[in-house]
Design a protein around this nucleic acid. Structure first.
Lengths: 139, 139
DNA sequence: CAAAAATTGTTTGTGTACAAATAGACTGTG
DNA sequence: CACAGTCTATTTGTACACAAACAATTTTTG
């Protein structure tokens, strides 16, 4: 019966994940103060693709239309991404990384790998793989 | 050498966690549209404690001073939490859940448990425990 | 006890994140 | 071909999240 007494906030998956994400973002910032994780994700995906519409980039990086707009605007504002409307489909805004965007990405990518590594550093290799496998199932 | 080619955004712990958190928040909202996860966390912890200063509540729920202020302001605005300065230490703002706050918490707590359960539903019991154990190490 | 240090809370500014509404452009089907 | 439905992007509003700076108040310590 004492149903409400058994709710331990600290044991809830959402609470723990929020804390782990906070730690991860702090590590990211310590190694890559230049960009936020979200901005880096958008830039990385765009560099991988070479080119994409804003909407497409949002879908591929799991960002809402409003969110990706803000992120892209900031990347454009810093000259890392250029944008122009597509002639054959006037709805779309085609994004391309600028040379500076590509250069920055190349410069940061090894540090980004380091971020993932540091985040997982309390775990063994086997544990890290286990964790990734489990998280993927919740994706 | 082709170092930058081997960065797979989708395999990075940060990216995957961001997606898992997004899914969790969506589940939370579907079952508990009344409050955000953050608001519920603050209310839950305050109900557990009976009483706390704003700063203390923030620390216990892993919220920054500015964040906890916003969250508490909204809970106060809805009459779920009451606040008054502490006589013996005029810096502190003592928070207490109102009767409505307590009632809402009691009403929602079983649904909150359901949120955690649904979030973990793609995993077996053993896998869920494994995941929680691994996440705790990253905390 | 007095000055230095620490704590609590507020404010401001930037950056996600999502819902909902809108406008313009395309696509498909009748 | 028309028009209903879909897609892309923008805008607005709300809610975290954190850094940095500030004021007021303890607490520490020399």
């Amino acid at each position: 019966m004492e149903d409400s007494d058994s709710y331990i906030l600290e044991s809830q998956i959402g609470f723990v994940m929020r804390r782990v994400v906070q730690r991860h973002i702090a590590i990211f910032f310590s190694l890559i103060p230049d960009l936020t994780p979200t901005q880096f994700a958008a830039l990385a995906k765009l560099c991988e693709l070479g080119q994409a519409s804003q909407n497409e980039l949002g879908r591929l990086t799991s960002m809402d239309v409003a969110t990706i707009k803000g992120v892209v605007d900031r990347l454009r504002g810093r000259g890392l991404v250029s944008a122009e409307p597509l002639a054959t489909d006037k709805r779309r805004l085609i994004l391309t990384p600028t040379p500076q965007g590509k250069a920055l990405y190349r410069k940061l990518v090894s540090r980004a790998r380091e971020v993932s590594q540091q985040t997982l550093s309390p775990l063994s290799e086997a544990e890290s793989q286990q964790l990734m496998m489990l998280l993927r199932k919740l994706d």
